[in-house]
């Protein structure tokens, strides 16, 4: 039971990092990315590659993963953010689909469909991280650092600029803000922090393959953000915990065929997204704090972001 909880906590920590970083662009910058799983994957493969060929030092692997992912996201964001939101959605969807192809086909680095097997345990300052408990602590530390960075950014002048751009780009532009630059920067920060989650994931499982980084994963992370409540700090955490506990709850329902549980989960996430958008566009965090979504103005502020 304890081992189960340790495992669940580690996975929750990794997913909360993903949800919080995606929320940074969706909720605060009003940018819609469907490529978060691609960034997660690039981070994971980069960390695995470095660990297997050069050094198992965790910090070095994470640094490489972050820089590489940051560069890819920069290449996506620079052209796509000069124009309106729809273009970024399209471009990020394209990148996500392309990333899956690359993960499957670039066999010398990604191992193709079979994936990368036998990723060594990481070391920190020469000390190996062995055992699930030690790893859980590492994941929680990474989560705490990510949360601190995001929270500090949101409160800083940069975060206020972002929110200003989200609420009205033309107004922010009129005040002399470099709209495209600020948006691009926010995407790069979010993606490189998602790479941290990727590195953690690769080391934790010591095995990665393309299955974990598909469009379905992007939609799942987005569901975490939106079900929890975009644009709030607590929202994505609530969402990630809920959506990770749900599968374990589903496996207790004896009448569901085990092979279909994955699809049933996805159907439930999809349904939750549709129903929330109809009734509580602010997500659960928004619904709780704003009196069950009756206050429309409140909903809008809580997270129903305008493009």
């Amino acid at each position: 039971m304890l081992a189960y909880l340790v495992n669940l906590t580690t996975l929750v920590a990794i997913n909360v990092i993903l949800a919080v970083t995606l929320n940074f662009v969706i909720g605060y910058a009003g940018i819609f990315s469907l490529a978060h799983a691609a960034f997660f994957g690039i981070g994971a493969y980069a960390a695995a590659y470095v660990a297997m060929h050069f050094t198992t030092d965790f910090l070095a692997c994470v640094a490489v993963a972050m820089v590489l992912t940051g560069l890819v996201s920069l290449a996506l964001a620079m052209p796509a953010l000069r124009v309106r939101g729809e273009y970024f959605v399209a471009a990020s969807l394209g990148l996500q689909i392309l990333a899956v192809t690359v993960f499957t086909e670039w066999k010398s680095v990604t191992g193709g469909i079979g994936g990368v097997v036998g990723i060594p345990s990481p070391t920190i300052f020469g000390r190996p991280i062995v055992g699930t408990t030690a790893f859980m602590v590492l994941a929680l530390v990474c989560l705490a650092i990510t949360l601190a960075i995001i929270a500090a950014l949101v409160r800083s002048a940069f975060g206020r600029n972002l929110k200003a751009i989200r609420d009205s780009e033309s107004a922010a532009g009129a005040f002399g803000k470099q709209v495209a630059l600020i948006k691009t920067f926010s995407v790069v920060i979010s993606s490189s922090l998602a790479a941290v989650a990727g590195a953690l994931y690769a080391f934790y499982l010591s095995f990665i393959n393309v299955e974990s980084f598909t469009l379905d994963t992007s939609v799942l992370i987005m569901a975490m953000v939106i079900i929890g409540g975009a644009g709030t700090l607590a929202g994505p955490i609530i969402g990630a915990v809920l959506l990770l506990v749900l599968p374990s709850a589903l496996s207790y329902l004896w009448f569901l065929p085990p092979t279909e549980i994955g699809s049933i989960q996805q159907i439930l996430y999809g349904l939750a997204l549709v129903l929330l958008m109809i009734f509580y566009p602010g997500g659960l965090a928004g619904a709780l704090t704003r009196g069950a979504g009756k206050d429309r103005q409140g909903d809008r502020e809580a997270g129903a972001v305008k493009a």
Partner: peptide, 30 residues
């Protein structure tokens, strides 16, 4: 229609539409 009645931003409509796409893909898959 219900989304547009109360708010209808690009974001909300897009997420709902993505939700429907996910439901259909997995229903067909099962």
């Amino acid at each position: 229609a219900p989304i547009e009645r109360h708010e209808g931003s690009f974001f909300t409509v897009f997420v709902a539409s993505l939700g429907v796409a996910t439901i259909v893909q997995n229903l067909i898959g099962t």
